Amino acid sequence: MFILSLTYVKPQEDADRLMAPHMAWVNAGYDSGMFLASGRKVPRTGGVILARGDRVEIEAYAATDPFATEGVAEYAISEVAVTRTAQGLENLRN
């Protein structure tokens, strides 16, 4: 599993302007089966996405996020070898 942590590097107003295309991009990530969960950071300094798949494909897809292409946010991607989960989340284990 991968944790995609995006951090705004431009004012929040720039992120707000791109929210609709960003959310279309997020929805496409879910539709493809790549994304498992997502949400805003609190306080709102960016967001986090949990994803599965091939690292190269995930990195390539992250690069197409409107937040990334417009320079509003930067991504840090970490791979996690999940070995234990709460009941009902067993499919997240490696």
Rank of each mutant, 00 (worst) to 15 (best):
F35E: 07
L4C: 08
F67H: 11
G47Q: 01
D54A: 00
T7R: 14
A76N: 05
D16G: 09
A37N: 09
E57R: 13
P43M: 06
R93G: 06
Q12H: 11
V26L: 14
V48I: 03
A86H: 02
S32Q: 14
D54E: 02
H22N: 07
F67V: 15
A15Q: 11
I58S: 04
G53C: 01
V72P: 05
V72Y: 02
E74D: 12
V80S: 00
N91T: 15
V9F: 02
L50M: 09
E59W: 00
M19W: 12
I77A: 01
A62H: 04
P11S: 13
R52S: 04
R93L: 11
G46F: 04
L36I: 09
G88I: 11
M1Q: 09
V42W: 12
G39W: 08
M34P: 05
V72T: 03
A60T: 08
V42Y: 10
H22W: 13
V48R: 03
A62S: 03
N94P: 07
N91G: 06
P43N: 03
G29N: 10
L92Y: 09
D31R: 10
K41H: 15
A73H: 04
K41R: 15
T64Q: 05
R44I: 15
E59R: 13
T69S: 11
V42P: 04
L50Q: 00
E70A: 14
M34A: 12
A20W: 14
P66Q: 12
A51T: 03
M19C: 12
Q12S: 13
G71L: 06
F67K: 07
E74G: 10
N94V: 14
Y75E: 05
A20N: 15
V80Y: 08
A68H: 14
I77Y: 04
E57P: 00
S78E: 13
V9K: 07
F35Q: 12
A15V: 12
V9R: 09
K10S: 13
T7W: 08
L18H: 14
F35C: 08
K10L: 15
L6N: 13
A76P: 02
P11M: 02
K10V: 13
S38H: 13
E70R: 08
V48E: 02
S78Y: 10
V82K: 01
Y30I: 11
A63H: 01
I49Q: 01
G33T: 08
K10F: 09
S38P: 06
A63F: 02
E13S: 12
R55A: 04
N91Y: 10
A51G: 05
N27P: 10
V9W: 04
I49M: 05
T85N: 09
E57Y: 00
D65S: 11
G39V: 09
Q87W: 13
E90F: 01
E57G: 01
T64Y: 08
P11A: 07
E70F: 11
E59Y: 06
T7M: 05
D16P: 07
W25K: 13
